[in-house]
């Protein structure tokens, strides 16, 4: 089974949160990019879980190859991490990912998947934690004519079909689908593993296979974005909290419940 995992490098969302909470999240002169250069870049969390899903399939003894693909000027750091975790091959598509929209990203990933001999299962995180868009897996599925299964908490492979437990609004749903298919993974899959020290050292020497849009036969025109960011801003939050202070916890609790009743927020 050929498994391809698509991963994205993002700004650490917790660091972005901390800046936002401190009121120090700022947009640069271009009106678009975050100015905080101290925010680390890391692998999108849901993508780590997508790789974890692939590794769990491998753990069950299924004969499979794991290829990780990422787009960017230099995604080698996260690709080495994937190699240390057990990816059989890692591929970097070198280009300015910021200039692409979801269609452009899908075009490049598709071209790479085809160049690499195809895929029986394409695993992606449910969405990226920077733009929260989550459209790429669906665009890939539709353009390859593959079914899409979203929000997986467990993925089992048996023969040429998959059994996927999905997190849906009513609880968990179990579905079956015949490969090839695209599956997106949600945080409910659980904590991704860490690489062993030995694997990390070995992975340092791994050189990602580097390719480019031109190498993949993708012309600039094919990457023309249908949507373009023209502005980014930080929405304001109007703080207006009435603090219930003073007294013992019992007195504070009585006061809060009384205030909530006064405001008809409780019956």
């Amino acid at each position: 089974m050929r498994i391809v995992i698509c991963v994205k490098e993002v700004l650490d969302p917790d660091a972005v949160n901390n800046y936002a909470i401190a009121g120090r999240l700022e947009i640069g002169d271009d009106g678009m990019s975050l100015t905080q250069t101290a925010i680390p870049r890391l692998m999108n969390g849901f993508d780590e879980q997508a790789l974890e899903a692939a590794l769990r399939i491998k753990d069950t003894g299924v004969d499979c190859s794991l290829t990780v693909v990422s787009i960017g000027e230099d995604p080698s750091k996260i690709l080495k991490h994937c190699a240390a975790l057990g990816a059989d091959s890692v591929v970097a598509i070198k280009t300015d990912a910021g200039a692409l929209d979801g269609h452009g990203v899908a075009t490049l990933l598709l071209a790479q998947i085809e160049a690499g001999g195809g895929a029986d299962l394409i695993l992606c995180g449910r969405q990226a934690s920077d733009d929260d868009q989550g459209v790429v897996p669906a665009l890939i599925a539709e353009r390859l004519g593959m079914p899409l299964v979203t929000f997986a908490r467990a993925v089992e492979a048996s023969g040429s079909s998959l059994k996927v437990t999905r997190v849906v609004p009513d609880g968990d749903e179990v579905v079956e689908v015949v490969c090839p298919a695209v599956v997106t993974v949600s945080n409910e899959l659980g904590e991704p593993r860490y690489p062993t020290a030995a694997a990390k050292i070995k992975a340092r020497k791994v050189k990602p296979q580097v390719t480019s849009p031109a190498d993949l036969g993708v012309a600039d025109g094919d990457l023309a974005p249908r949507i373009q960011m023209i502005r980014q801003f930080v929405p304001t939050v109007q703080g207006n909290c009435e603090f219930i202070d003073g007294g013992s916890p019992a007195e504070q609790a009585d006061k809060l419940i009384a205030r909530l009743r006064e405001e008809s927020l409780l019956s």
């Binding site: 975050l34 373009q228 502005r231 930080v234």
Partner: peptide, 10 residues
């Protein structure tokens, strides 16, 4: 975007 920390105009 960023869970609501920012808004992006496309």
């Amino acid at each position: 975007a960023y869970g609501g920390d920012t808004r992006v105009v496309y």
